[in-house]
Write a protein that binds this DNA or RNA. Structure first.
Lengths: 149, 149
DNA sequence: CCAAAGTAGTCAACCAAGTTGTCTAACCTT
DNA sequence: AAGGTTAGACAACTTGGTTGACTACTTTGG
């Protein structure tokens, strides 16, 4: 019998691949999961590059690369920090917010298909079970999302 | 609400980290998930480097690197292919089989802790649900395990 | 039966996405 | 004002993969 983590990885992979395929059909830039996590993060709080690195669980240099790409592609822009002349806030542009909306729809489509395949209730149990496990392991302070990707 | 794949990734990550930590306490070589998948594959069939690459979903060159490491560390050895003079079978050594046994125990410990945290039945549902979804997506021929890692 | 096409494995160059290390300018104590 | 810390940039390096080229062997079809 497969270890559970193998099932997790394969399922993650399967869903991620479908997501990516459909995204590409629309002809968007080659956004990686990390980019998506940045969008999701920026929707909630104003953040600097350092904050983003912390959230992703990577160095600030790695975070800076990601932010640079997003900037070039027009998904985010940098604005001066009001009180700290060293720092810059990274904020979502309209294009960034639109992407996020689109991606969220896509995810819920995929979840819908999953629910159809294995049953609403099973999916709900999976969701709750995993969330409970994560709380069990990490307590309240969930760690960064360190690359699985 | 978090997309399901995020939960999958975080859970995978959490379990993998614990696995890795405990492994390191024992002082084994820095084996990566890919190595484990190779062990698991070799337990079932005799395979060449090309076969392994196919199974992992990477190029034969990448597979060759992994096999080289495992060879250096004494987990596998190469023996001549009986009918094809170009090819070599890669087979597990005793050290390799011992590792696999050890790792399997570790995994089931971790699953046991998970079961304790979220309930036997919930874990069983997760297992079956994910397996069902994978069958739904891929049919009988599961693809390679392409790196999530 | 042999010529052409295909395959296993190796070598080498390259690439992507991270790392560490260093530096400057600004900030925060005291 | 001085000394330690921090945000961000730049550069060199590491890891784990890639593509491409080549040799030796195998398979296939006329």
């Amino acid at each position: 019998m497969d270890p559970v983590p193998m099932l997790l990885a394969m399922t993650y992979r399967a869903m991620g691949d479908q997501f990516h395929d459909r995204l590409r059909q629309i002809g968007l830039e080659p956004l990686r999961p990390a980019h998506g996590y940045v969008f999701r993060f920026l929707k909630e709080k104003r953040a600097t590059t350092v904050d983003i690195g912390q959230h992703l669980g990577v160095t600030k240099q790695a975070a800076a690369k990601i932010v640079n790409e997003l900037d070039e592609w027009g998904y985010v822009l940098r604005e001066p920090h009001p009180t700290d002349k060293r720092a810059q806030y990274v904020t979502l542009t309209t294009k960034g917010r639109d992407y996020l909306k689109f991606a969220d729809n896509l995810w819920s489509d995929l979840e819908g298909e999953m629910a159809e395949a294995i049953g609403e209730d099973t999916l709900a149990t999976i969701r709750q079970g995993l969330a409970a496990y994560l709380r069990h392991v990490h307590g309240e302070d969930q760690p960064g999302l360190r690359p699985v990707w």
